[in-house]
Amino acid sequence: ETGKELVLALYDYQEKSPREVTMKKGDILTLLNSTNKDWWKVEVNDRQGFVPAAYVKKL
């Protein structure tokens, strides 16, 4: 879809709370919100949640 910003997972991340999502290094995720410098909201496999901003980079 146009207008979607994507990020690349630089590291594996295992969710530690229900508000977070698990990702694997190399995953491409849809970026939903990056206003917080530490935690970015992403969508992966129809799930939305937060990942550490340092673990992903914008494509």
Rank of each mutant, 00 (worst) to 15 (best):
G3K: 14
Q14C: 11
F50S: 03
E43S: 10
A54L: 10
G49I: 05
M23N: 00
A54H: 12
K16W: 04
K4G: 10
R47E: 05
K24E: 06
A53V: 05
K25A: 13
Y55V: 08
K16C: 11
K37A: 13
K25D: 02
K41V: 14
K57Y: 08
Y11K: 13
L10R: 05
L6D: 04
T30W: 13
N36P: 05
T2N: 14
Y13C: 02
K4Y: 12
A53Q: 06
I28E: 03
K41T: 08
S34A: 12
V42R: 00
V44R: 15
D46Q: 12
E15I: 06
L32H: 05
L29A: 08
Q14E: 15
T30S: 09
E43K: 10
W39Q: 03
Y55G: 07
D12G: 06
S34V: 07
F50I: 07
R19P: 05
A54F: 08
P18D: 13
T35C: 14
V42N: 00
Y13T: 01
W40C: 04
Q14A: 12
S17Y: 06
D46H: 11
D38W: 15
L29G: 13
G26V: 00
K24L: 08
I28D: 00
V51Q: 00
K16D: 06
G3I: 13
D46S: 10
M23V: 10
G3R: 12
T30Y: 10
L8N: 02
E15K: 13
D38N: 12
T2P: 12
M23T: 03
K37V: 11
L59C: 14
V7K: 01
E1L: 08
G49R: 02
W39S: 02
L32V: 12
P18F: 08
W39N: 02
K25W: 04
S34L: 04
D12Y: 04
K4W: 11
A9D: 00
D38T: 13
E5H: 12
N45S: 11
W40P: 01
K16Y: 05
T35G: 12
N33I: 08
T22C: 06
L32R: 04
R19V: 09
P18Y: 08
L31P: 00
Y13W: 11
L8G: 03
Q48H: 09
V44Q: 15
D46M: 10
E5R: 13
W40V: 06
S34E: 14
V21H: 03
I28G: 00
E20T: 08
F50W: 15
N45T: 10
